[in-house]
């Protein structure tokens, strides 16, 4: 196993009280595979990635429990110095908005060669050649000239290509991509997704894709973790989870989106109610107030992630065996 996140909890101090943004979450990534963390805003998917990289903003945020084993080493136990060697070198990160992670006053060349020089010990001419090779690989035309330019001279799609090139610069074993195509137009999104898929196959890089977009997950991921209110509520291979969702939230999400491949429905089937308020979660399952399958124990007794069917498919729902069967909703 390349990455094993075990019982990870991350909390934030807010005006409304302490919020457990990630609540006892465990999942893993095998060498070379693509794993998705999917969920809506506030579900804890981005905080999970930041926790792995130990980039949670202190003092408001802190990791309160768990281990993050990367190639067997617990990243949470490393010194800051050791962690710096992991970031960028062994685990790279791609963000939704590349402008926030690029330095606007440095040329692209400077930003692209820095990592290779620090982490790989390449001398300037070699690092420059490497940067040109990487830019060409991600489909940026005329890379030699582009190296002398600044981030604002690139379009959104080109910046995201550059971020991918920079992420690959040190040949990491794992890339964490947080909403990598959300800010992009649909035709550019398709280009970037194809590029990432192709490169991860070619170099055997494992990927964690964090997204709210169910279509991106379907096109992209081998395995999926669905998160709600800081917890993983369902996990499985993408095919099984989409074909036979076993958590009411996953089922609700899949049913609520209009699909271009299906006949148009007269009416959409939303998930009713509001997203959870993390400062006021019920003792039991956080999805209870919106759930059509809820039973008496749900608001008070929290279900653990447990196998449904074969061991690869897990759901945190007392009624998991019924979910997805077309019985009348309890409500």
């Amino acid at each position: 196993m390349l990455l094993e996140v075990e019982h990870l909890s991350t909390e934030f101090a807010t005006r409304g009280g302490v919020v457990r943004a990630v609540d006892d979450v465990s999942w893993d990534v095998k060498e070379g595979e693509t794993v998705a963390l999917v969920g809506e805003s506030g579900c804890g998917k981005s905080v999970t990635a930041l926790s792995i990289m130990r980039l949670v903003a202190a003092p408001a945020g802190r990791i309160t429990a768990g281990r993050v084993l990367f190639k067997g080493r617990d990243l949470l136990a490393l010194s800051e110095e050791e962690m710096r060697r992991v970031r960028g070198r062994e685990i790279a990160m791609i963000f939704q908005e590349p402008m926030t992670s690029l330095n606007p006053v440095l040329t692209i060349g400077r930003q692209m060669t820095e990592g290779a020089e620090i982490h790989l010990g390449l001398a300037p001419p070699a690092s420059r050649d490497r940067a040109i090779e990487l830019l060409a690989m991600v489909g940026i035309p005329d890379p030699g000239r582009r190296l002398r330019q600044y981030p604002h001279q690139f379009s959104g799609g080109m910046r995201q290509r550059m971020m991918i090139a920079m992420a690959l610069a040190c040949r990491p074993a794992l890339i964490l991509a947080d909403e990598p195509t959300t800010a992009l137009d649909v035709t550019i999104q398709a280009q970037i997704l194809e590029l990432m898929k192709d490169l991860s196959r070619r170099f055997g890089v494992a990927m964690v894709v964090i997204t709210h977009n169910l279509g991106v997950v379907a096109r992209y991921a081998d395995r999926v973790n669905v998160m709600y209110a800081g917890k993983v509520v369902e996990r499985g291979t993408a095919r099984k989870l989409y074909r036979n969702p076993r958590h009411p939230y996953t089922l609700g999400l899949l049913r609520s989106v209009p699909r271009l491949d299906e006949p148009r429905r007269e009416r959409l089937a939303p998930i009713e109610g509001q997203p959870p308020d993390l400062t006021r979660l019920p003792a039991g399952c956080a999805f209870t107030p919106r759930c059509a399958w809820r039973v008496t124990r749900c608001p008070v007794d929290r279900p653990a992630l447990a196998p449904v069917g074969d061991g690869e498919h897990l759901s945190a729902c007392w009624e998991a065996v019924h979910v997805g069967r077309e019985r009348e909703a309890v409500r």
Partner: peptide, 12 residues
């Protein structure tokens, strides 16, 4: 239309 990902891994 072709660029829109369909939320179904088998179709994709």
């Amino acid at each position: 239309l072709a660029a829109v990902p369909i939320p179904d891994p088998e179709i994709e």
